[in-house]
């Protein structure tokens, strides 16, 4: 186990290193010279010498590997630099301001998704080929085929335009969270229902479930004590390994509903060519995925005693 953790952590570190190199390369390929952009794309007249001086001060005259080392060191110490567009605002502050929105959104979406999809998946798995089972598979097939941004637009049409119940955009009140939470939950629900159903079907065929039934336990006890607890394991993995997918969903949904979260900050910064913000978020999001995937692996080994890594 100790060796397994060590190998996985080392692999994670290698991946984060590769992520940073890839990010650095992509950012250097981005169109537009940051110094040129800083001075209003040529609107502010500066001499060639001043230009050179600024480049030297920012280290842009150094060879690429030196630039990378400086940049990587800053990133590791949490110094993400200042925004190029909102001049003077530290990128770290902008990210900290956006995190609560994204976190709230995803937390409620996950709660909503799990509280519907887990019972639905179990129910469908218990009664295969019943009405519930067909209903669950239609819902999850539709959920997987429906783009989240379109679902968002349709909810805006129904609940904001036609019924006038909820605000279409923004976060002026807590009600602004309702529609985006539903959209994000729908996506997760589709996936989790499917996984929960098939793992319930699988678990119900296991010997220990037959033994539990043979002992004369009530069906209720068999399902809750023996089946569900084991059937939940794959759900943990699916959620953990889907973190990259969840973050992708957030980026699009926050843009649809104009919510000031991480996703919106990211797309806005790409359009404004705010390299400092883009590269910081890029590295942070990818590193987050690596860490969550690693934790999922380890958590899985902890909660399932049948798994021991050698």
């Amino acid at each position: 186990m100790g060796r397994y953790i060590f190998v996985r952590v080392m692999q994670g570190i290698v991946v984060i290193f590769l992520i940073s190199v890839l990010t650095f390369i992509i950012m250097r390929m981005m169109p537009g010279d940051p110094v040129y952009l800083l001075f209003g794309e040529g609107k502010v007249r500066i001499t060639e010498e001043q230009m050179q001086a600024i480049r030297a001060r920012w280290g842009l005259d150094q060879p690429y590997y030196v630039q990378y080392m400086v940049w990587a060191r800053n990133m590791l110490t949490g110094d993400f630099g200042d925004s190029l567009i909102r001049t003077g605002t530290p990128v770290r502050q902008m990210i900290f301001e956006a995190i609560p929105v994204t976190l709230t959104l995803n937390l409620y979406a996950m709660l909503l998704a799990l509280s519907i999809s887990i019972p639905l998946g179990i129910w469908a798995g218990m009664r295969r080929n019943s009405f519930v089972d067909y209903f669950a598979s239609i819902v999850s097939a539709m959920g997987i085929a429906t783009p989240n941004f379109w679902l968002g637009l349709m909810l805006i049409v129904i609940f904001s335009l036609v019924l006038g119940l909820l605000p279409p955009f923004g976060l002026r009140s807590w009600q602004g969270y309702i529609l985006p939470v539903i959209v994000l939950a729908a996506e997760q629900m589709a996936v989790v229902t499917r996984v929960m159903r098939s793992s319930t079907v699988e678990v119900l065929n296991e010997d220990y479930v037959r033994t539990a039934r043979a002992k004369g336990l009530t069906e209720r006890t068999v399902i809750i004590r023996h089946a569900v607890r084991n059937a939940l394991l794959p759900v943990v993995t699916v959620i953990g390994f889907n973190i990259a997918f969840i973050l992708s969903g957030t980026i699009v949904v926050e843009t649809v509903f104009a919510l000031p979260g991480i996703g919106r900050l990211f797309t806005d910064s790409v359009f404004r060519l705010d390299y400092q913000v883009v590269q910081s978020l890029f590295v942070l999001l990818a590193a987050l995925v690596v860490v969550v995937n690693l934790l999922t692996d380890l958590l899985y080994a902890l909660i399932d005693p049948r798994i021991r890594f050698d």
Binding site: L22, A244, I251, V252, F266
Partner: peptide
């Protein structure tokens, strides 16, 4: 692994 670590939309957008 590195490619899998990027939220795909973020990577595509950039």
């Amino acid at each position: 692994d590195t490619l899998m670590a990027f939220p795909i939309i973020a990577l595509l957008v950039v």
